[in-house]
Design a protein around this nucleic acid. Structure first.
Lengths: 112, 112
DNA sequence: GTTATATTCAACCAAATGGTTGACGATTGT
DNA sequence: ACAATCGTCAACCATTTGGTTGAATATAAC
């Protein structure tokens, strides 16, 4: 159906893919060109380009073209609404870095 | 292909549908029977039953059968991991970015 | 001007998703 | 015993998703 997708749909859908979450994690470190984003993955550049399109449409990253290189930049503010929505279901402890590291670890070792 | 869906995949995927998010919001107020969950929606009971199955498999709700009625109960702790994962992206600007980046570099170079 | 690099586009494909309907098993009420 | 209620199951269907390949575009380098 037409799926009048609201912001939360788009955000959660974008985050529901391990490749896209890995990309976001990579972009925590630094802005990156599309080709460099694609390098660690065992899929085509076109596939990564699509993933980046989805992340861009969700507002989770922005892309700026300079010359023939398109730079990808993390836009973490786009997660805020979804994050707030989730927190309304119970106050989780304030950010626990240890926990994040554990999950990041499973993320990185898992998607291959 | 691999579809090694981890916990975050399952959680975010479950949350990426407005019907399922509405159900979770309804269950904030009280436990509900499947039929009562379905009542406000303009779709079949079978469709709602499927949504509840997805939420259950994601751990976001639990279902307990008493007589012929199956009660649905919110399990907000299942959102905790995803919530932490998201919050982390927003917090690092404010908090200890350097420490996290060092951690990240270690993890990324350790890639298997 | 030719060649290499960076990225997207278009067409295709298999599998997953979100819905339908009708039949079914299990439980409750009369 | 019989009928009504609760919920799931199985089979189907259309659309979306996540991937592929090969051609196309735009910029950079030689």
């Amino acid at each position: 159906m037409a799926a009048m997708s609201n912001q939360l749909d788009t955000t959660f859908q974008a985050l529901a893919d391990p490749t896209r979450r890995s990309i976001l994690t990579m972009l925590l470190e630094d802005d990156m060109a599309v080709t460099d984003v694609a390098a660690p993955f065992e899929m085509s550049l076109a596939a990564i380009s699509k993933h980046l399109g989805i992340l861009t449409r969700a507002g989770l990253i922005s892309q700026e073209r300079r010359g023939r290189v398109k730079w990808c930049k993390l836009e973490p503010d786009a997660m805020r609404d979804a994050s707030i929505w989730m927190q309304s279901f119970g106050q989780f402890e304030a950010v626990n870095l240890d926990a994040f590291e554990r999950f990041l670890e499973t993320e990185l070792s898992d998607d291959d």
